[in-house]
């Protein structure tokens, strides 16, 4: 299924930026050896949109995002990020992107403010009339909530604080497109909540397009304007959380009791079915319950459909990592 968001596929580089399309992916394919990881992924995003790439492990989320970041060569298809093919992106193009990496123990001896000042300095020559780069460092530290820790060493921060540093590094150049790969992997619930607040704040401040990957449906639902479900190397569904649950789960479940017995019926037209039910049995009907499948049910069904290829998927995940 080809998913196109809003705009028509732009034909030229200039056109895509003019129309505010920042990400444009068409029929993206990736093959490692004899394994197809991506078999035709298409989507696009406009300025200021938050997209979540959702899918089980090994679905090709990381591969997709790394191709868009310009960190990985694709096997086929057309990709444009800010009107440029990432495989040929120069440093000016790079200066307009932000990548939030998962830190581990790098720069442990650096102080937070010192590190951000240093990394920000690379962006200074890339200021434009519209965007002044880099971000004012004190303001940035404030935005990500690290004011109290600005003079601490990165190695002394807690996991959640460190993640804020990662985000600050990702956005220090005031990116027009921001990539986040599994941003909350390994977070406890409160750190996760804080991180979500931070992302919301970012989209409020700048008109940044954000593409994030996650295998957490709840996270996708909270953060994204639009969710792309990636499974088996393709986007199998896309839309807002609402649209997805409506579009894919047309069926609703109707439960009722009649004369002490309980009944369950699955139907596409719950309203019509219930009207009919009352018309026939009237006052005999009790304990009526109509339930539309939740997004989670839908997602689980979708993923289960691809579960048959699970072993296959696991090898793919392994290869992805080994590369």
């Amino acid at each position: 299924m080809v998913v196109s968001a809003g705009a028509e596929t732009p034909t030229s580089t200039g056109a895509s930026t003019d129309r505010g399309v920042t990400l444009d992916v068409h029929d993206l394919r990736m093959r490692y050896g004899s394994t197809d990881v991506l078999t035709g992924v298409s989507f696009s995003a406009r300025r200021g949109e938050v997209l979540a790439l959702l899918g089980p492990n090994g679905a090709g989320k990381t591969t997709t995002i790394e191709i868009l970041e310009g960190f990985r060569m694709r096997s086929g298809g057309r990709v444009e990020v800010l009107g440029t093919d990432p495989a040929r992106g120069d440093e000016r193009w790079r200066s307009r992107l932000g990548v939030v990496l998962q830190s581990w123990r790098d720069h442990g001896r650096w102080r937070v403010r010192e590190l951000l000042t240093h990394l920000g300095s690379y962006y200074a020559p890339y200021s434009t009339g519209r965007i002044s780069r880099p971000w004012d460092i004190d303001e940035l530290i404030q935005v990500v909530g690290l004011a109290e820790h600005a003079h601490k060493k990165v190695g002394q921060l807690s996991g959640g604080q460190r993640r804020r540093v990662d985000v600050a590094i990702g956005i220090v150049g005031r990116p027009e497109v921001l990539f986040l790969d599994e941003p909350t992997a390994g977070f406890d619930p409160s750190a996760r909540r804080e991180f979500h607040d931070l992302v919301h704040r970012l989209t409020d401040i700048d008109d940044t397009t954000i593409l994030l990957t996650t295998h957490d449906l709840d996270e996708a639902e909270k953060l994204a304007d639009r969710i792309l479900i990636l499974a088996g190397g393709r986007i199998i569904a896309s839309g807002s959380a609402d649209e997805l649950s409506r579009r894919i789960s047309a069926d609703a479940e109707v439960r009722w009791s009649q004369g002490g017995a309980r009944f369950v019926h699955s139907t596409g037209d719950a309203t019509g079915f219930v009207r009919e039910l009352f018309a026939q049995h009237g006052e005999d009907i009790a304990d009526l319950e109509v339930r539309r499948a939740s997004l989670e049910d839908t997602y689980m069904t979708l993923v289960r459909d691809h579960e048959s290829g699970r072993a296959d998927g696991a090898t793919r995940a392994f290869e992805e990592v080994a590369r």
Partner: peptide
Amino acid sequence: VEREDGTLLRAKATPNGMFG
């Protein structure tokens, strides 16, 4: 060491970062 811990990747994600 810095390739393993991701320092190098950060440089790569920064414009002209590898040169610096």
